[in-house]
Write a protein that binds this DNA or RNA. Sequence first.
RNA 1: GCCACCAUAGCUCAAUUGGCAGAGCACCUGUUUUGUAAACAGGUUGUUCUGGGUUCGAGUCCCAGUGGUGGCUCCA
Length: 675
Amino acid sequence: MKKCWWSSATKRSFPPTPPPRTGLPVCFSTFSAIIFRGLPSKALTGSCRHSVWRKSASDPTARQDTKDRGIFMSDERYEDSQLYKIRHSAAHVMAEAMLERFPDAKIAIGPPIEDGFYYDFDLPTAINDEDIKWVEKRMKKILAQSHRFTLREVTPAEAREIFQDQPYKLELIDDLVNGRQDDNGSPIAAPAENLTIYTQSKFTDLCRGPHVESTKEINPKAVSISLRRPAGAYWRGDEKRQQLTRIYGTAWETPEELRDYRARLAEAIKRDHRVLGEKLDLFVIDAMVGKGLPLWLPNGAVLRDTLERWLRDIQIERGYLPVVTPHLGNIELYKTSGHYPYYADSQYSPIDVDGDEFMLRPMNCPHHCRIYSSQPRSYRDLPLRYAEFGTVYRYEQSGELRGLTRVRGFTVDDAHLFVRPDQLLGEFMAVVKLIQHVFGSLGMSDFRARIGTRDADSDKYVGDNALWEEATVAIVDACEELGLDYHIEEGEAAFYGPKLDFIVRDVLKREWQLGTVQVDYNLPERFDLEYVDSDNERKRPVMIHRAPFGSLERFIGILIEHFAGAFPPWLAPIQAVIIPIRESHNDYAVEIEDLLKARGMRVKADLQDRNMRSKIKQHRQMNIPWLLIVGDRDIENRTVSLRLRSDEDLGALPLAEFVGAARERIDSYSGEIRL
RNA sequence: GCCACCAUAGCUCAAUUGGCAGAGCACCUGUUUUGUAAACAGGUUGUUCUGGGUUCGAGUCCCAGUGGUGGCUCCA
């Protein structure tokens, strides 16, 4: 059974309970395995067969560690693999070489991650490329020698002695000895009695292992730290604490694997949506307009518009009603909704309008709530499903902006469903099915579904506990009912309710949240939404917020990478180009162009004064699905000579046959370009 | 926002220790009329990101700003 690439591996590879604390192995790089033990939530007991992933506020380092951690296709756990040991050991060797280069450096932690490893250092001076080169060379030299990795169990006192000059290690030792606690002082890991250290060559690290037996097991030619530049990282992921220098490396079992990895990286960069966005004339981000504010070029706008129309039609079929609302709203709207105090940091400053304060809207729900309120509602009216491609504006930190996947102004394919409590489960399931349909139609099967629940210890949520529990149960039930492969993460809820998110990874394996469904009892309360029930009582509807794409910008960014710029014909900005062989064939080319346009296709005849071969090359590079080459023979026989994006030359085809077949491909939303 | 690095023609990049700013592609003009990934010739293209500084002289060195990249933090 093929699972999506990380739905099962990442989270569920963690032991359901803390590993037995024999006082033995405790490795800082695998801290998270302890921190992230499954913790069944009360609300879910009995209904959930899936693991609960607890996010620990008290140890963000562990959280990051986990995020980076191995994502593995095979049945073997990454932690048990030889590759894991190699990378873990390579991290130690890198630290050894770094300490030779920077004897005063303080070492933090150095775990294996997906595709490699890193180690964090507190350095006396900034590191430069020369240092990296030196360290890499030195590392390889150490690896070429034969050093054993020896394990030793030590008492906390011995450990403190050994690491007396290493403040980060001392902090870790204290935490281990005292046992880990969360922010409220609840224990989340038992105290350790003894610690383990590993030594190779002249380097000793506080570590649980596992490691290779000897550096002989690591091929120096399969190790590289030159690939990734050094990066800043906060100690334990806390931005208020010391910022460390993180050095990434990669290590494989063989040089061939390293070469393949580098080739994969190079390929990934080629399909990066920012690279393809420029090459295919889809969008630009212009400094004068502002960072994080993409401009859609005609090709990109066609793609976007096509997606919008597609989804709009699907939604209309399913009983959604279109609404249109403005991009600004009176600040009272957000004070009423509760967004204003909670999200002040990500909103833009209010705009003064004749003495009233207005805001660029950071979300669409308040507007839709007011539409609901605009007239009395009967139980017979529900469910009401208001849909809008609503543009919102959010302040994002400058360092976090990235292409189309993280922007400051974006359009949510939003809808808000106002439902009776008895309709909640059915409507929620219908929404999940809609999202599955959207993802499935585009061939996007590599996602993970995450149920974000409230962090019981946090006060950043509004609403009644019982309602939260009800909403959470509804979401879990719906996922169970649909057989969705989900996992639960505490602390990932919206402030007003729990949610189900669909998360995908981009070409460089970064995670992005796309589709989302959220159950909300709170906004109806805050906006005092009501309907008159069959018993003539006024009752409160439940709201479902949902967006299958999440945002058009981010979704298209991911979609560009998903298709590597070769969109299925129904999405391709230009579906066919007609290439006349000689000038004398131009009239026929234009005739075909007109014919195809009349059949609703996006085509153009390329009448440029240049030879056919160069035109073929140009349009192939633009990933045009169909190239129609026409010459004397085609005019004579009323045919087109079809050349596919895939490089196949299908030869002459009667014009009418092409039109019918192409239309059929487009209308069926097929990814197939062969006719 | 933080750490590091980067910024030369529309694009990809070059320019020796500080010494006249270049190439390919694109674009324009002309020639060419081609049967499946680049015809030929000529030509245009620059506030070397911006502002200061050092120097006889700055694309190159220094400072500040802006923008970008990688990472961290954040992410309704």
